[in-house]
Design a protein around this nucleic acid. Structure first.
Lengths: 120, 120
DNA sequence: TGTAAATTACGCACATTTTTGTCACCACGC
DNA sequence: GCGTGGTGACAAAAATGTGCGTAATTTACA
């Protein structure tokens, strides 16, 4: 997903939210301020490099806010921005949609011409 | 995004909708039935292999329906399933959110401790 | 009192894994 | 030979992970 192929805003959101981590990080941040190491502990399967990269991406997108405190043991806090908070219900809705249709998910088999004809 | 890391439904939707093509394909299919070659023409930047792969993924997810017509010039049609149609507004909402916040997107700079303090 | 070690939040170089693309090929009928 | 809707082998590109180094300060331990 190096660059965009359309000017569609949806493609742009997906560029930020697509992938495994962004939505998960947003989820953890929903509960309130988290430090870098908190997020690492919440999700040990993400490498620190990717975590920083993803957080920067979300920061650039205006979804999370990064605050640096100088001082002895370096300290950086992450929070959802107001925009990030308005995004939450939309993402939740997607999750709910999935759950609803996952429960009702049937064979999902390709129809043959015969079956298609039988319907009409 | 080989496998899941949580049981979160959001991660699962993202596994299907994440990436560049799924949402675009859904967009084209929104207008009605499309054949494989229609979709190729709509979007020449996707390779045919990826197109088939993505379509299969969407089919498996119950978002698109594939119908094969036997006969002389091979013919396969793709449509959104009812579930796929209910998904559209959710995806649109994300796009709208992006546009709204893209317009209002400010510096998005990391705050320093001093700035953070100045706020309170 | 001295010193080694840990913590925190990274950045960098490199290695590996995953995804995506290329190209050739298939059968079918015209 | 063309177009249709694929599949499979392989290659390129992109994403992700690994391990080391950094700074300042605190703690552990003899």
């Amino acid at each position: 997903m190096k660059d965009l192929v359309s000017r569609c805003p949806i493609e742009e959101v997906m560029q930020v939210l697509g992938g495994r981590w962004p939505t998960l990080l947003i989820y953890y941040l929903k509960d309130g301020t988290k430090r870098f190491s908190d997020l690492r502990r919440d999700n040990p399967t993400v490498s620190h490099r990717i975590l920083t990269l993803e957080l920067r991406k979300l920061e650039q997108a205006g979804i999370v806010e990064r605050t640096v405190f100088d001082g002895y043991p370096l300290r950086v806090e992450y929070d959802l921005t107001p925009a990030g908070h308005t995004l939450m219900p939309l993402v939740d809705a997607l999750g709910d949609w999935w759950e609803a249709h996952d429960a009702a998910r049937p064979a999902a088999q390709t129809k043959t011409a015969a079956e298609a004809a039988a319907v009409s």
